[in-house]
Design a protein around this nucleic acid. Sequence first.
DNA 1: GATGAATGAGTATTCATTCAT
DNA 2: TATGAATGAATACTCATTCAT
Lengths: 204, 204, 204, 204
Amino acid sequence: MPPVVSDKYKQEKKAAILKSAFECFAEKGFQVATIDDIVAHSKISKGAIYNYFNSKDDIYIELMNQHTNENITSLKRELEKLADTREKLDYFFHLYSHLDQHPQFSNSTRVHIEFWLYSTRKNELRDIMLARYELYKNLFKRILVEGIEKGEISTHVNPDELSFIFWGVIDGISLHFAMLLDQYPYQKVYKEIQELIYTKLGFN
Amino acid sequence: MPPVVSDKYKQEKKAAILKSAFECFAEKGFQVATIDDIVAHSKISKGAIYNYFNSKDDIYIELMNQHTNENITSLKRELEKLADTREKLDYFFHLYSHLDQHPQFSNSTRVHIEFWLYSTRKNELRDIMLARYELYKNLFKRILVEGIEKGEISTHVNPDELSFIFWGVIDGISLHFAMLLDQYPYQKVYKEIQELIYTKLGFN
Amino acid sequence: MPPVVSDKYKQEKKAAILKSAFECFAEKGFQVATIDDIVAHSKISKGAIYNYFNSKDDIYIELMNQHTNENITSLKRELEKLADTREKLDYFFHLYSHLDQHPQFSNSTRVHIEFWLYSTRKNELRDIMLARYELYKNLFKRILVEGIEKGEISTHVNPDELSFIFWGVIDGISLHFAMLLDQYPYQKVYKEIQELIYTKLGFN
Amino acid sequence: MPPVVSDKYKQEKKAAILKSAFECFAEKGFQVATIDDIVAHSKISKGAIYNYFNSKDDIYIELMNQHTNENITSLKRELEKLADTREKLDYFFHLYSHLDQHPQFSNSTRVHIEFWLYSTRKNELRDIMLARYELYKNLFKRILVEGIEKGEISTHVNPDELSFIFWGVIDGISLHFAMLLDQYPYQKVYKEIQELIYTKLGFN
DNA sequence: GATGAATGAGTATTCATTCAT
DNA sequence: TATGAATGAATACTCATTCAT
């Protein structure tokens, strides 16, 4: 109950809006959830929401940026701790193969892919999404490149293509899990995929 | 206009609506395209459209059913012609690895996944989509089962899991291609994927 | 009530919307009156209104076009009946100097000038308003040009400038009348103005 | 910020707000310009603005009062310096016929008339605007009355009516100039108008 | 006095669906 | 069967004003 309010206050308010927004998007989908849903859910007035964000699209973008930043930062930090390529890839597979345990994973996936598709028709959004794609792709690609340089993985591997495959597989599996839920053998599928890729890399 | 119209007339009309609807959905996305867009594109009146379909959702469902039926029928027909498992899988990979040539492939993918996600929140739709998923999964799974029975592929393969993987990979790659378009090395990715899977199956 | 409705029906509906819209604009001003006001006043649904017009701006434009067309047509018809320049100008002055009798004249003036000002900030609208200005200016200018050619008015007159003056005076007086109403000696002012201009033209 | 701020401080602050407000109104129009526009332009907080003014309407009123006061004071001062009626009228015409040179003239006119029209529907505002109208009318009328008394202008002149005409013409021409800008022969029109009126007054 | 976050009624516009003809 | 006008709830976003600090 401002004004002349601390940065902390503002950050918390923004965070509260984002949290509510995520929950609304998760429940109904990005396009179906309305600003009024967020108002009702967050108990923050419409005007206040628009004080912190320019548009509904903007809310999603910030939500995703925040998640991406945290995620990438955390991934990099963990990967740095690990010495060899095998360990790094183990880390990746371990991480993603247990996402099904996270209660919001399927909703999160749905919203993410829905927005991805939605962004396809709006150039400004599309550029943002592509830049983010690049970030993830390079993260993985770098591991492979270094693995090859260090002689830890087969030189037959094309880091670029394998990165595309890796993230494609991740999104495909996430999408199917988001649809099938309990009926999808999520962890078994990951085990198999890991084996396929490890064989290619020349592990074991 | 005919006094009592023939079945043929009705089928053609329905087909014309579906064709237009597909083109509208492809251009704008399922949720963004409107019934009025379909009216304008098809030059068929709104009332007539609602004579043949109960709702916008229904139009999509019929569109998908028709496509699925044609597609599955055609797949089965082609697969029957082929004797061994390797050939059958070659056929699959050849087919999907060239979809990027089809001008409407990326739009079609977008609409398909968009609707899939959308269906997630409506039980009635979700059941329909799941049944369709099952159809495709079994088609692939049966090939693997038969391949194992005939000793043409490694007994280490779990047909169920590998089917999940196969379709997951297909959708993941299609989704990424729909986003990245020219920047996505579609065919190279398929070649690699095929190799990964063939190794697993024990081919070569 | 529809569909497959006669042209007459549609014209009447459109006319009913325009009539209501005019009354709402007159009562509250163009910018303050809302589409909901028009809905309430006309008892025509919002959707129906947007079936006939693209936007609130569009409603005003059509209102003005209709009025302008009727007005210009009627002016031309009357002017054609009159032989000499003096009579034509008499007709003009008589017409405009009695507008204060029309119950909606002041409201009409207010809305018209408000929209004129409003149009200033939107290029598309501005062009439309300027074209309309030209129409009126030329109508008057032609009379003067012909009057000079026929030797009925002084050759010292510059038809272009005098037309600007004529319409400027009309709008200035209308605007002041719209403000002052009963306190404005509308007809006396017109008499005086007429005299000023007639002297210039060399009448009497 | 001062503990007890001086009157001078307050006046300067108020003046700064009015200056910004005028520029915002001029740029976007009174109804379209927002308080936030004024905040952004003046770099004075919203709360501070509402400390000095009760409402957006109030800001305009004060703006106009200030301008009117300055303007009338200046007019009176200059007119006092001049001996005869002809010179006084010359002064008027010279002043107004060169307003087109002032860069903000057309914007100023637009805002002024827009607010005038807007005030029409709010009695409180309307009274203020009418009082101001009276001020200007009397200023001009007094010159004519004195001119008649001093025998410097024709006794056929009705000072009241001619004042209405004078200000009506000024506003009409200003309005048309604000619309047409370069396309309007502003100074030529004034020359002509002056001639018309001078003839009536019996000059030359 | 100054600040600026909060408020929430208000705005133009859209669109799936209905149904009288 | 075909038509397309009508419906009205729903939508994202705005903005003058308030008031706790």
